[in-house]
């Protein structure tokens, strides 16, 4: 057992042990910061019955929506469906068992999993459908008990990463990625730039490499702008 991450040549090499029925976290907000190479590799492998955990499960037919189109996802945990017609259709048809989680609760459950927190109370969702079947406790206001959310694999994209797995994210591409990296039992990171140790100054490391098991240099990024709005 070693905590040292391993550098892999590409997505195929890094995702050698995926199986049907895995839980899979994927970073990204809409299409911003999604692990494009790993997603394409999972499409290629064709594994099925995936429990996908991601804020949007893809969007506009791209990202994890590619897995939805191939019926590779049977369960989804997410916060937002708008903008993802593939998910909305399969959810309403009952093909994908979908659990909607308030976005702050979603992030905190993932953080809790990585940080060893066993449960927490939050006001988000109290008095709504989200509270159904959950313990409610009165603090300054009613709060519901929420549990951590982890996954067999987390697939993450970062702008820069070094051989140890230290990561640096660009602008708002950070979103859920460092949290999921902490909550994945095996965390696989793809980067725009694989750099040498020390190239990311210690003060600027957004996620220490101890949370990363595998890293590889990605390629052919599309980096789609979903909704361009200009001055």
């Amino acid at each position: 057992m070693t905590s040292q991450p391993k550098v892999f040549t590409d997505a195929t090499a890094a995702l050698f042990d995926l199986e049907d029925g895995i839980s899979l976290m994927s970073g990204g907000f809409g299409l911003c910061g999604i692990p494009e190479n790993s997603i394409h590799e999972i499409v290629r492998q064709g594994i099925r019955d995936i429990h996908a955990i991601s804020n949007n499960i893809g969007n506009s037919g791209r990202g994890l929506a590619l897995l939805l189109k191939q019926q590779q996802i049977s369960r989804a945990t997410c916060s937002y469906v708008g903008g993802n017609p593939d998910l909305e259709r399969q959810m309403l048809a009952g093909d994908v068992d979908t659990t909607l989680v308030p976005q702050g609760t979603f992030s905190e459950r993932i953080r809790a999993a990585g940080m060893g927190i066993r449960a927490f109370y939050t006001p988000a969702g109290a008095g709504t459908l989200v509270a159904q079947g959950k313990e409610v406790r009165e603090f300054d206001r009613p709060c519901i008990l929420e549990y951590p959310l982890s996954a067999d694999f987390a697939i993450i994209k970062a702008e820069k990463g070094d051989n140890y797995g230290n990561l640096w994210f660009k602008e708002t591409a950070r979103n859920f990625s460092p949290l999921m990296a902490m909550a994945g039992r095996t965390t696989v990171v793809e980067v725009e730039q694989l750099v040498e140790l020390g190239d990311i100054p210690a003060e600027d490391v957004h996620l220490p490499g101890v949370f990363v098991q595998r890293i590889y240099q990605g390629r052919d990024y599309e980096n789609v702008i979903e909704i361009p709005v200009y001055q």
Binding site: F29, G30, L31, C32, G33, N59, G83, E159, K170, E171, T172, A173, N223, V224, I225, E226, I227, P228, V229, Y230, Q231
Partner: peptide
């Protein structure tokens, strides 16, 4: 505000997935 077409970044968006 909003970027110009030359300065828009795919990694700089708001919660509506619009460029900012």
């Amino acid at each position: 505000g909003r970027p110009g077409p030359d300065t828009a970044s795919p990694t700089l968006i708001n919660a509506g997935k619009e460029t900012i």
